[in-house]
Amino acid sequence: MSGLRGSLAIVGIAELAEPAAGRSPAGMMAEVARQAITEAGLRKEQIDGLFTTTPYYYAPSLTFAEYFGLTPRYSDSTVIGGCSFEAYIGHAAAAISAGLCDYALIVYGSTQRSDAGALVSGSEWTEWERPYGMLHPISPIAMIANRHMHEFGTTSEQFAHVAVAARQWSALNPRAPYRDRPLTVDDVLSSPMISTPVHKLDCCLVTDGAAALVVTSAERARDLATDPVYVLGVGEAADHRNITGMPDLTSTRAADSVARAYRMAGLGPDDIDVAEVYDAFTMSLLVLLEDLGFCEKGEGGPFAASGAIAPGGARPLNTNGGGLSFLHPGMLGAFLLTEAVQQLRGTAGPRQVAGAETALAHGMGFTLGGHASVVLGLAQTL
């Protein structure tokens, strides 16, 4: 697998973060796909690999290929939750290296807010969970939070600092919806309780949105319109779908997926300049910070409360405001990648992390069950 290091490059990206305004998920996907392909200096006809998933369509790759007019010779609609798009990076690297496709499109779109939040993560084993009043996915996250508090003394105030840091980053993002509404720890703690100890402001936004990336071999990327961002390492891991199947409520397989990505990249957590980590909830993000190696297990609460993940802190994290304060259209993974690329390109504007040369994008699927990690870097990191 180490032979994939530096073999793949991201050569085009696009995002939509505004309300759908009557557009369909496929229509939004088509818009960002066109923009990303154009940015790369390619023609639609050159795209011969398609990687996509969305709960809106039973056969998303077929639906989108028809809608957009693609004829891919390789397609992948793997579903491991919101981290599917980080997984697609590794899948595309393998497919392109094997000659199964040359130019691949990774694309996602959702009209969740326009649909009044209709995109809901349920449980397959409802007979074991629903009778106990589980509200998916919030109640499983509450179980994780309660266990972390019990084992390590983590407090609701420390969880709240995660939301506050996200809002501080979003204040630097001109497209963020609440950039002019600062958030305090007291604001989070006084917001409605959804599933103890999860407050409303511990939860991600519900938005519309779409994102696309175009990837190809490092060799082909040298002849295209943009400066490539290279894939240095990838990793995946999974162990459960439902919270009743989670082996340890305070540790996840993120530690395994990121270890594989770090190993391939030849880097470690201290070498990462900027991190984009799936933040559906303050509690889940705090656990991931520990498992990704940014602090020791059990120290996530003090780490967040120290200001380390806020603007100016030692660990620049979710620099666009993330799912907590920028957007969360059902699945966030593609947007972690597009923000990481912007940071490495130096095009992130007021939120730009100075001198960023390496980035980690880590996605999670469902209630911390699926994980995929991607380490990205510039040409000098190869």
Rank of each mutant, 00 (worst) to 15 (best):
N318D: 15
P72C: 09
T252D: 01
S84T: 15
L332W: 09
P60D: 02
T282F: 01
R345G: 04
L201D: 13
H148K: 04
R253P: 02
T154E: 01
A9Q: 12
L62R: 15
T71F: 08
H148N: 08
A145S: 02
V234M: 06
L4H: 13
E31R: 15
A280N: 03
A265Y: 10
E31I: 09
C203W: 01
A221Y: 11
D186G: 10
G363V: 04
A359G: 08
L172K: 13
G41K: 08
Q342A: 08
V164Y: 04
R113A: 15
A30M: 07
H150Y: 14
A354T: 14
A98E: 05
T282M: 01
S190C: 09
A379S: 11
S170W: 05
G323D: 01
N318R: 04
A210K: 06
G333A: 05
F294T: 09
D279I: 00
T319P: 08
A36I: 07
H362T: 03
M1R: 15
D180T: 09
E129M: 14
L172Q: 14
E151H: 12
A354C: 05
S75G: 04
S217L: 06
P60N: 12
E339P: 01
E290H: 04
A171M: 15
V375E: 03
A104P: 00
Y67R: 12
V198F: 01
G330F: 02
R181N: 03
G6E: 00
V107T: 05
A93L: 06
L344R: 11
T54Y: 11
P174Y: 08
P182L: 10
L224F: 12
A176F: 12
N146E: 13
E276L: 10
A308V: 06
G298Y: 10
D248T: 13
A116R: 07
L232M: 15
I10S: 06
F294K: 00
S84A: 14
V341G: 06
G49D: 10
V214H: 05
T71M: 09
Y178F: 15
M246P: 04
H161W: 10
L172P: 04
T338V: 09
D180V: 00
A218N: 07
C83P: 03
A160Y: 03
V32D: 05
L70T: 01
V229D: 03
T244A: 13
H148C: 02
M29L: 08
V274K: 05
C295F: 11
N173W: 11
K297A: 11
A314W: 06
K200N: 02
L382F: 13
T216Q: 08
L285E: 15
H136T: 15
A211H: 05
C203S: 10
C203N: 06
G346P: 11
A340E: 03
V185I: 15
E357Q: 15
M29E: 11
